[in-house]
Each structure stands twice: as C-alpha cells, then as structure tokens.
Amino acid sequence: MKTITLECPDRLHEQLSKLAAAGWFKSPEDAALEAVRRYLSLHSVELQEKQIMADVQWALNECR
C-alpha cells in the first residue's frame, strides 16, 4: 500500500465530502480512491481491446 498526497480543488473536495456525509464512503479520501478505481477501469487496455475486438466481429459478421 502506498500513500499519495495531492491538492484537491475546493469544488471537487466538496463533492467528495458530500458523498462521505451521505454515507456512501467512510471519508472524502475513500470516495477519491473509488473515483480513481472507476477511472482506471474505464481507461484500461483490456477495455480498449475488448471494444476493438467488438468492432472486428461487427465488421466481419454484420457490416455490409
């Protein structure tokens, strides 16, 4: 486990705090960690390759 220290813009911190206050996360830091997880899952090489392979299948099977 590593520790990252970062400066968070006020508006963003406010949104993270709201999520924590609403009970979705233990703290704004936990909410930020989840946001990073979700960002990485949507920008992964695996996802990109899966989407390209879907394009290939579409082109070979459906596109005319």
Binding site: L42, H43, Q48, Q51, D55, V56, W58, L60, C63
Partner: peptide, 23 residues
Amino acid sequence: AAARAMAEAIGFQVRGTVGLILR
C-alpha cells in the same frame, strides 16, 4: 474507451478506427 462505454450505456452504436477500416 470511456466515451465508447458511455455511448453504449445510453444506447448508441459505437465504432472506432479499426471498425471503420474493416467497414
């Protein structure tokens, strides 16, 4: 990848450069 995921999630077709070449 993220734009494609979002467009698909709201019901649109999506194609990329590889798909366009094969098309």
